[in-house]
Amino acid sequence: MNVPADYKYTASDEWVKLDGKIATIGVSDYAQEQLSDVVFVEVVLGEGDSAKKGTTCATIESVKAAADVNLPVSGKVIQVNEDLSKTPELVNTDPYGKAWMLKVEISDPSEINGLMSSADYEKFLQDRSH
């Protein structure tokens, strides 16, 4: 299971990569493996939308499952990954890279403290599988 060290994670398997006030958001390798072949991704927030942490920001569908992606931090959407609607399989092939879903300008930096480090997330995944 790939859990890059420079990312933050949530218990619902989203990742966040911080660059100053800008958070890039996607779903983890574990999440894509659980979903199996992803056939559809819809980012439901648009550029300019402000939303609170926990808001559904995207939905992912595979053949057998569907999952909502929840915003890990509150903020304003500044960019959405348009490629995913045409090539949803990126979620499977490159979950931490090309399959980023949206970029958000964080409104409450303290929320970052509530996210898991890669070590915490790895432990969390281990506990969950038992």
């Binding site: 056939v39 559809f40 569908e61 595979s62 053949v63 057998k64 499952a65 569907a66 909502d68």
Partner: peptide, 13 residues
């Protein structure tokens, strides 16, 4: 196809 939209998978959503 597209069964992931349906009640038996999405349940209350």
């Amino acid at each position: 196809t597209l069964t992931a939209r349906e009640q038996h998978i999405r349940r209350e959503k």
